[in-house]
């Protein structure tokens, strides 16, 4: 059974006096499997947060359905298995982090002893032990994010859902969050997070879903999404001038390029099959292969292609 099962989920907002309709999510379907880190990617305003909020019971879908561990979204049984970190989290600033985690523990039905132990462990884990009894009014944005991570884990959830978990953290904090997410996966938890920071997604995700303008464009493992898109293959080889002369018409016939590379030469080809033929010809002609490098698509390039916007517009 999938941990998250989303079927044709839709959300259309109706706003203003003239009841203007805006489709934020259009028939999104995907599944998140147990024990994986699933990255939900998309540019700003693509529908990532709306989808997550529907899964968390904050927004009512206008169509489709979704289940978390077999229970419909919004049900208490489903929520009991979820830990959620909202985007730019803000908590009751008149409470201390410890008091807030106790409150969350009460909502999960934990007894006082378990609450105390787990709250202290988690605050220690996110590096807030020194400030745990201080009112959150005095916390920085990064500290709030750490409280957010701790409260998301308070109920020992099977599924951890995070909306931009690295937001507001410095490089060390971001590394700590990455380590935490990997640790959660190693502990058998399922992690579902959305981000527009592709470097984080590349480093962490087993599978990703790319959402653009409310539509899911691609879902799959990074290997299947990127590995299947070899853009070109580059061969770096060495050989006599006669070999180059012999190769030139063959490379031209395949639509490739023969390039001068100092001591050796390079060949640029469109596919791995073409590269196989040229490699065989080089070896047969007495040449030596130094390097054969398939250039696959990066996540950023895939993202740009799917979203139809420029790379620089993706970064924020």
């Amino acid at each position: 059974m999938s941990v998250v099962e989303v079927k044709a989920l839709e959300k259309t907002f109706v706003r203003g006096f003239f009841r203007k309709r805006t489709a934020a999510v259009r028939g999104v379907s995907f599944e998140v499997e147990r024990g994986e880190i699933f990255g939900f990617l998309g540019p700003n305003g693509a529908g990532k947060t709306t989808t997550i909020k529907m899964l968390m019971g904050l927004i009512h879908p206008t169509g489709g359905s979704a289940k978390v561990l077999g229970d419909p979204i919004g049900a208490v049984r489903a929520k009991r298995k979820i830990g959620y970190l909202p985007e730019n989290p803000y908590f009751y600033d008149y409470l201390s982090a410890l008091e807030f985690l106790h409150m969350v523990g009460r909502l999960f039905g934990l007894d006082a002893k378990t609450r105390e132990r787990r709250a202290n462990e988690l605050l220690d884990r996110v590096g807030l032990s020194m400030a745990k009894s201080r009112s959150m009014r005095s916390y920085s944005k990064g500290m709030m994010q750490r409280v957010g991570l701790a409260q998301a884990l308070m109920g020992d959830p099977e599924l951890v859902v995070m909306d931009e978990p690295m937001s507001g953290l410095d490089p060390i904090g971001r590394k700590e969050v990455r380590d935490l997410l990997l640790e959660l996966r190693d502990a058998g938890k399922t992690v579902f997070f959305c981000t527009h920071i592709l470097a984080d997604a590349s480093m962490l995700c087993d599978r990703v879903g790319i959402i653009v303008k409310g539509e899911l464009k691609d879902v799959g493992s990074l290997d299947s999404l990127l590995g299947g898109h070899v853009q070109h293959v580059e061969i770096h080889a060495q050989g006599e001038a006669a070999l180059r002369t012999k190769l030139a018409p063959k490379v031209e016939e395949l639509g490739g390029k023969l390039l001068d590379r100092g001591e050796g030469f390079g060949v640029e080809l469109a596919s791995t099959q073409q590269a196989d033929a040229i490699v065989a010809a080089i070896i047969e002609g007495g040449g030596r292969i130094h390097e054969l490098r398939p250039h696959t698509m990066t996540l950023e390039e895939l993202f740009v292609r799917e979203s139809g916007t420029k790379a620089e517009e993706m970064r924020s």
């Binding site: 208490v76 959620y84 999960f108």
Partner: peptide, 14 residues
């Protein structure tokens, strides 16, 4: 206004 509700409603309560 303070968006504290975003962290509470997803918790196991109606």
């Amino acid at each position: 206004d303070k968006k504290t509700v975003y962290a509470i409603i997803p918790k196991p309560l109606w």
